[in-house]
Simulated scan of single mutants.
Amino acid sequence: MIEKELFWDDLLNAIDTHAYRTIYVVGNTDCGKTTLCRYLVQQMVPQKTVGYVDCDPGQSNLGLPTTLNAGLFTSPEQQAPEQIFSRFIGVTSPRQKKLQCLLAVQRLTEKMKQLGSEFTIIDSSGYASGADAVEFHAVLIESLQPDLVVIVEHENELERLAQYISKLNGIALKRLPVSSHVKPRSMPIRREYRETKFREYFQNSDLKVVDISNMMLCGSLPERFTVQTVRGRLIAFLDSEKFVVKVGVARSIYDNDQICVCLVPEFDQDQASFLQIGDLFLDPELKEDHSKQAG
């Protein structure tokens, strides 16, 4: 059950009064952005088809860590979208792959609108502190052109971003305080969340030999595929729109980059047009292995 704040109703009234169709929610880690977004989905879906874009590759609600995800909500009874579209980033923080995240959010937002979203909520990541993060959100907001940006903050820590948005023509701004119900999560708890998601995703997976001769390799390609640069590395098989078909954990790539051995759930290999190489490594127990560096 969502513990709502009374001032969230003011936001709903503003959305209804001005007929906003796309909103972008931004704030630092542990400010309650996602809970607010879930509440908005819950309140809006009885009247509209709602597209929800989850932009957090570290603590994703809809998909696997290292991915950005989106789906449609069409009825109040839905606990999750019937179909989830994912873009593979290969890392757990946008700061490491800003351009890829920018493109992924654009493509996911476009996909929701193509599928009939009448109200789209973009739930940004908690990467919001510092000049680089502010610039990241500023560029993304300018590119997406949402009707409304909602800033959730403790004590005006996103003042610079707010000033930037106030100068943009046609984009409204609303600033909200952090919910009193927010429960901060430590870094170890966040890592355990990611590793639990990995274990659940790969629990029924087997090692497979995949012919990748007709796939385009992309992403963080090492100079050479060796045991050191491949084993344990997250990879993703992508369709022709570069949406995720399946994510895997590589064991080896050999035969002049024609064959990939990986731990991966069952999938139709004919759907895969691209093989994207990620930066994150997992150990045999599917825990994050930071002793290895991509490159």
Rank of each mutant, 00 (worst) to 15 (best):
C31Q: 15
E285L: 04
Q269T: 15
Q258Y: 09
F73K: 00
T120R: 01
A250Y: 02
P65C: 02
T17M: 09
L103E: 15
L168Y: 11
L6N: 14
Q258L: 15
C37W: 06
V209N: 13
V261P: 09
D279Q: 11
A19L: 02
L282N: 05
V26W: 06
L176C: 02
P265S: 08
D132V: 11
F243P: 04
K183G: 11
Q43V: 02
F119I: 00
V230Q: 03
L36A: 01
R224V: 13
L64R: 01
R251Q: 15
K208M: 00
M215L: 13
Y52P: 02
A128H: 07
T229L: 10
V264N: 03
D270Y: 07
G58C: 02
M215A: 14
V209K: 14
G27I: 12
P184H: 04
A133F: 01
L207W: 12
Q59K: 07
L173R: 00
Q96T: 15
G51F: 00
P265V: 08
L72I: 10
I277N: 12
E153T: 10
G248N: 04
I171D: 06
S166Q: 05
R185V: 09
L280S: 07
D30E: 08
Q269F: 04
E241A: 09
D211W: 03
G51T: 04
H290L: 14
V182R: 06
R251V: 14
H154K: 07
H154I: 09
D132H: 12
L115H: 11
D211T: 06
A19T: 04
F198C: 05
V134G: 10
V134Y: 07
V53P: 00
R160L: 10
E288D: 15
D257L: 02
T226Y: 04
L221F: 08
N69R: 06
P94G: 13
S86C: 11
V150C: 01
Y201P: 09
S143E: 15
F88W: 09
N256L: 10
S291E: 14
A70Y: 01
V230C: 08
G219A: 01
I259W: 04
G126N: 13
C101G: 06
P46W: 02
Q145W: 03
L158C: 11
Q203L: 13
S220K: 12
F7T: 14
R95I: 15
S166G: 00
D54Q: 07
S240R: 13
L64N: 00
D10H: 12
P65H: 01
K246M: 10
A138H: 10
C260Y: 00
S273Y: 09
S143L: 09
I212M: 01
V152C: 03
V26E: 12
V150S: 00
S75D: 15
K167A: 12
A128S: 10
P284Q: 07
A272I: 11
Q114T: 15
N28V: 14
H137S: 02
P222C: 12
F73Q: 01
Q83N: 14
V50H: 08
E153M: 07
R175N: 06
M1H: 10
D147N: 00
T35Q: 10
L72K: 05
I141W: 04
L176P: 02
I235D: 02
G130F: 05
A70P: 07
L140K: 01
I15T: 04
Y24C: 01
C37T: 08
P57L: 01
R38S: 15
S213P: 07
